Simulated assay, not measured.
Amino acid sequence: MSINYTPTAEAISRRDAEDRASRIHDQDEAVALLKSADRNSDRGLGFAIRRRATMFSWDLTGQTNGTLANDLNTEFRAIVTAHKAYGQGIRQDLDARAVSAEYAKDLMEAGDFAHRLDTVLERAVTNRDQAVKSFEGTIAAITTPTGTAEQQLLVEIRAGRVWDRLTRELDVIKDPASAMSLITTRILTADPAELSVIVSDAPSYLIGRGLPNAKTSIVATLAQSHPAVSKAYDRMNAAERLLIGARSNHRRLTSRIVAVPSSYKVEPAGTELKRSSSYTDLTLIK
């Protein structure tokens, strides 16, 4: 006796959600679709999107480099303002001889301004690292086969055959630049099965042929044919520029903040104390 299985409405809904999520190849698209799913209380779709985002290291918070830059600028300014006010209070106590110079140093160190600067910088580092993971994940999302385990296996077998044929073509090309040109053409016209093997195997092949920048060239070509890769690449570069600006501020301010406690010492005349330097060259992160 045979048993006819009829999928339940819940199973169909879950399958549809997985199918919709599997077609997402871009972090921004994932963020937008997740917002829609949450508005409609579509938990199944939301779960599928979050799982795919985790798989490809996409950030679903919706934070942009622009909003983070504004946050970091605000935090750096707040630290400068707090440091000045804190130092001025200790300065007044020193002038009034209410505290000793040694105790003033202890008070400044207790302010822990260096740690606050480190915390701000860590946000920029984390953002850059996340952008790199997201960029790599976007490429993986485009080149990773979908479907059942059997379908994925068939795609991988086909991809291996594609690469075998392509390497035979490449091996007879004597000029490495011409070999790079052939691969570039294939990337622009490849279907997902071809694309996955070209992106994964071509860089090491071309490097072995004397093209050390092959991976960069392949990624640039991939960005031409896939807007999602282009956007992720731009986001990664913007995150790197943001980190450079944050490091500049961290370096300048740390040297001054650390120097302030040791500057609270009596001048030779014994009547004046050294003053802290200004903060006029604070870099505005963009």
Rank of each mutant, 00 (worst) to 15 (best):
I3E: 14
N4C: 08
Y5T: 06
T6L: 04
P7C: 01
A11P: 02
A11T: 04
A11D: 11
I12S: 06
R14D: 02
A17Q: 05
A17S: 13
D19W: 06
A21Q: 10
V31Y: 14
L34M: 08
L34A: 10
D38I: 04
D38E: 15
S41T: 02
D42T: 08
R43Q: 07
L45M: 03
I49Q: 07
I49H: 07
I49E: 03
R51F: 03
M55A: 11
W58Y: 07
W58E: 09
D59T: 09
A69N: 08
E75D: 02
R77Q: 06
T81W: 01
H83M: 06
K84I: 13
Q88S: 07
G89A: 09
G89W: 04
R91N: 04
Q92P: 05
S100I: 05
K105I: 00
L107M: 15
M108E: 15
G111R: 07
G111L: 11
A114M: 12
T119Q: 08
T119C: 02
V120D: 01
L121N: 07
E122S: 14
E122K: 08
R123F: 13
R123I: 02
A124K: 03
T126D: 11
V132H: 08
T138A: 05
T148F: 13
E150S: 11
Q151L: 10
Q151H: 05
Q152T: 03
L154I: 09
V155G: 00
G160I: 02
G160V: 00
R168G: 00
L170F: 07
D171C: 05
I173V: 15
K174D: 14
D175H: 06
P176K: 00
S178R: 15
L188P: 02
T189Q: 13
A190Y: 12
D191G: 15
A193V: 09
A193S: 13
I198D: 07
I198Y: 06
S200V: 14
D201R: 15
P203R: 00
Y205E: 00
I207N: 04
G210C: 00
K215R: 13
V219E: 14
V219W: 14
V219C: 04
A220R: 15
T221D: 07
H226T: 03
A228G: 07
A228K: 01
S230N: 12
K231C: 06
Y233N: 14
N237Q: 12
A238R: 15
A238K: 10
R241G: 02
I244Q: 14
L253T: 09
L253N: 02
A259M: 07
S263K: 10
S263R: 11
Y264M: 12
K265V: 12
E267F: 12
A269C: 11
E272T: 12
E272K: 11
K274M: 13
R275V: 09
S276T: 07
S278K: 09
Y279V: 03
T283V: 12
L284Y: 01
L284I: 03
